[in-house]
Simulated assay, not measured.
Amino acid sequence: MELRIRPVVQVALAIALMAGIGRIAPAPAVELSWLTAVLATGSLAFLFAPAVRFSREKTTVDPVHPERAERLVTGGLYRVSRNPMYVGMALLLGAVAAWGFAWGHLAVIALFIWWMTRFHIIPEERALEARFGEEYRDYKANVRRWV
C-alpha cells in the first residue's frame, strides 16, 4: 500500500478540518437537519453492511493489507460499488457538512474522495488484481469504483 494511515483516521482528520473551516467560515442560516439524517443513515448502511458481508465471507476487511484477502467479495453493496465503505465515509463527511454547512466543507469532501482514490483505492485495486487476476478484472469492468 502506498499509504498506511487507516481510512478511519483520515475520516477523523477530515471531520476535524471541517470543524476548523466551520469556525473560520461559519454556517449560513440554512436548516439542513433532514439532509444530515439522510446522509448519516446512508453512511451507516454503506459502512456496516459491507463489514458484515466480509465477516460472513471469512475474509479480511483490512484496507491496508488487501493482499491478505481470502476471497473476492462481490455481493450486496459490492454489486453497485467496488468501494462501498469509502462511499460510506464520504456520506459521513456529507452528513457532517450538512450539519454545520460551510462552503469549504465541499472542498474537504472532494479532497477526501481524490485522496482515497489515489492513496487507497488504486493501490488496493492493484493488490486485488494481483491476487484474483481475471476474476477481479471482470468485476472491475462491471462495477463502478465509487457509485
Rank of each mutant, 00 (worst) to 15 (best):
F101G: 03
V11G: 00
I21M: 10
L92Q: 08
E129C: 08
V96D: 02
L3Q: 08
F54Y: 15
L77M: 02
D138S: 14
G100C: 06
A127Y: 00
L44N: 03
T74E: 04
A95V: 06
A69T: 07
G100W: 14
L3C: 13
Q10W: 15
T41W: 15
E124N: 06
T59N: 13
G100D: 14
T117G: 08
I109Q: 01
G133F: 05
I122N: 09
N142Y: 10
Q10R: 13
L111Y: 14
E125P: 08
M18D: 00
T41Q: 05
A27R: 05
L13R: 03
A98D: 08
I15N: 03
V9Y: 10
R144W: 15
L17I: 11
A95M: 06
T59Y: 11
R71H: 03
W103N: 08
W34R: 07
R23V: 04
Q10A: 08
F101V: 11
E124L: 13
E125N: 09
A19F: 15
L72V: 01
T41D: 09
V61T: 05
M85T: 04
A102S: 12
M1Y: 13
E124M: 10
H105T: 02
I21N: 00
Q10N: 09
A95P: 09
E70L: 12
G100F: 13
G20F: 12
Y139F: 14
F46R: 00
I5E: 01
A130Y: 03
A40N: 14
L93R: 00
N142Q: 12
A69S: 14
L47D: 07
A49C: 11
P84I: 13
G94K: 00
G75L: 10
F48A: 10
A45L: 14
T36D: 07
L128K: 01
R6C: 08
A16H: 12
A97R: 00
N83R: 09
T117R: 11
I113E: 05
A25V: 06
G94N: 05
A27M: 06
R82D: 01
W99G: 01
F46P: 02
A37R: 12
A98E: 04
E70A: 11
A25F: 05
G76Y: 08
P26F: 02
T59D: 12
I109F: 02
A25M: 09
H105S: 10
Y139T: 03
N142T: 13
L72M: 10
T74Y: 12
P28E: 03
E2R: 15
M89P: 09
K140M: 13
A130L: 09
M18E: 03
L13S: 05
K58P: 04
T41R: 14
A12F: 15
A12G: 11
W115V: 07
Y78F: 15
V38C: 07
S43E: 07
